[in-house]
């Protein structure tokens, strides 16, 4: 049944109820024309009144250069600022414990260490990941903080000192100093001497050496030039930041080429002294966090 004018219909009554229908029919079932209860209409008017109340109470209408602010001057930004301040206050209360406790006390107290780890993690992400990477994984020439090899020491105290004073950060009087000379570039060792010493060092770390390498000659070069910092046995010296040459961890790469480059050009890392940028509590938190990454000694 097609209706030429869909908005008009013939008056139609339902046989059972005698009620008029809307004229709509689906599968032969016709829709009764039941009027809506009047209170339903009133709820609609109430929502309109409610919206007017909203305009008066909350910021609502745009004006040329601003907007209506509402009776109580409510602003979601102000609310956010307030909440953030409350959060800061709560953080300060939590951090108060970190201020007086020693690093060992923080580490051994579950409550203090939880606060310190959270704070340290946040600060690490802000300040440290640029060089040391997410999670302190490091990169070639940036030490991995999750392993057990520490150029400058991995105790809580050592880590705190490193963060506070930095490495070769000359503005800081107590900064850690250490530098490997450019033996090749500065003409202290000849090319074949460099290759000999590299092969000798590789033998210390049980890495493969060049065919027919003269390890005895390498040891002579080593004893004369390297042992002062790296030690007779190649175990390194944390006082001057000289790495252990006998382990499996190589900050600048363990290939023969990388090691020749190290001896030729020398190596020296640099790290800012964070005492001038971070407060002591944050540095304590960072220390505990870095120590917890897995390498802590």
């Amino acid at each position: 049944m097609t209706n030429p004018n869909p908005t008009a219909h013939e008056p139609d009554f339902d046989a059972v109820t005698g009620q008029s229908t809307t004229g709509h029919s689906w599968d032969g079932i016709r829709e009764l024309n039941t009027p809506l209860p009047r209170w339903w209409l009133w709820t609609f008017y109430v929502t309109i009144l409610w919206s007017i109340g909203y305009w008066l109470v909350y910021p609502a209408w745009p004006l040329i250069s601003s907007h209506t602010t509402g009776f109580f001057g409510y602003s979601s930004r102000a609310e956010l600022t307030q909440e953030m301040q409350a959060l800061e206050q709560r953080r300060d209360i939590q951090a108060a414990g970190l201020k007086t406790a020693s690093l060992e006390e923080i580490k051994s107290s579950p409550d203090l260490s939880r606060v310190a780890l959270a704070r340290g993690k946040a600060s690490f992400a802000e300040n440290c990941v640029g060089c040391h990477g997410q999670g302190g994984t490091g990169a070639p020439s940036y030490p991995n903080l999750t392993d057990d090899d520490w150029v400058w020491g991995g105790s809580l105290k050592d880590i705190q000192t490193t963060i506070q004073n930095g490495i070769r950060w000359t503005q800081n009087a107590d900064t850690r100093m250490g530098e490997m000379l450019a033996f090749g570039r500065q003409g202290m060792l000849k090319k074949d001497e460099i290759e000999q010493v590299v092969d000798f060092v590789r033998s210390l770390a049980k890495l493969d050496t060049a065919k027919g390498a003269n390890l005895a000659a390498g040891k002579t070069v080593y004893d004369a030039n390297c042992a002062a910092c790296h030690g007779e046995a190649g175990k390194g010296n944390r006082e001057v930041g000289a790495p252990d040459l006998t382990d499996a961890i190589w900050l600048y790469g363990s290939s023969r080429e990388a090691m020749i480059e190290s001896v030729h050009n020398g190596r020296a890392g640099i790290m800012p002294a964070w005492a001038s940028r971070l407060d002591p509590v944050t540095i304590k938190a960072l220390t505990v966090y870095v120590h917890s990454l897995g390498g802590g000694q």
């Binding site: 994984t137 991995n144 999750t146 252990d244 499996a248 897995g294």
Partner: peptide, 18 residues
């Protein structure tokens, strides 16, 4: 499992996962 890093090489060549 810790993703950064997936594993860490230790001084003695052993491998550690966190």
């Amino acid at each position: 499992h810790e993703r950064t890093p997936l594993f860490t090489t230790l001084k003695d060549g052993s491998i550690r996962n966190a």
